[in-house]
Amino acid sequence: MRLNEAGKTSPATASGDLIVYRDDLGRVGHEAFLLHDRLKKAGDMTRGAKDDGSTAKAASVLAMHHFTLGGALTTMTMIWNDQLKTLLQACAHISNHLDYSKKSQAHTDAKIAADMARRDGAAMPVSEISKYYE
């Protein structure tokens, strides 16, 4: 997809319609799922980089010893976690939506194929298909 220009068009895209292939939807959805998984693991800074400490615990100790940094670190941690949750939800939404779209498109394709076949399974002739466009 190009945003800055239309690019060269093939006969299939000359009308300007967006064409999406199920394999593309699946790949993008899978990448969103993988990104969600990586973000969930790497983005949780409150548990520490190697599960050996806790940013929230450090903030609490600093605040207990009357360091202003403790309160600021607590605020920063809360904002970070809120932003991380928002990003994780977006990745999950993208992944789920594309998985649904892929399955829905496959179902729609199968229904169209069934509707366009004759009772004996033979393909519908062009003369019958053209009636749908009158």
Rank of each mutant, 00 (worst) to 15 (best):
A56G: 07
T77R: 01
H107N: 08
R2T: 05
A110N: 11
H30L: 12
N4M: 03
K103L: 06
A122W: 05
A113N: 10
G53D: 15
A58R: 03
K85L: 06
A56R: 14
A12V: 07
G70R: 00
M116H: 11
W80L: 03
G53E: 11
I19D: 05
L18K: 13
K41S: 12
A90F: 07
I19Y: 08
Y100M: 07
K50N: 11
H65S: 05
L39P: 09
D120V: 09
A6K: 12
D44W: 08
T108F: 04
G7Y: 03
N96Y: 05
K111L: 14
S60G: 04
S101N: 08
I79Q: 05
A114Y: 11
Y133C: 09
S130I: 13
A122E: 09
H66P: 01
R118N: 15
R119L: 13
D37V: 12
K41H: 12
I79N: 06
A56E: 04
H36S: 14
K103T: 10
G71R: 01
N96Q: 08
L18V: 15
E5M: 02
K50L: 15
K111N: 14
G16A: 06
L84Q: 04
D17Y: 05
H36A: 12
D24Q: 15
D44N: 12
R2W: 09
R47F: 03
G48A: 03
T86Y: 04
A123S: 15
K50Y: 13
I19N: 03
L62P: 04
E31G: 07
G29I: 07
R118D: 10
C91N: 01
W80E: 01
L18D: 06
K8N: 08
L3H: 00
M1A: 05
M45D: 00
V20C: 04
A6P: 03
K50T: 12
V28S: 10
M116D: 13
K131Y: 10
G48D: 02
K40M: 13
A117P: 02
A106W: 02
L3S: 00
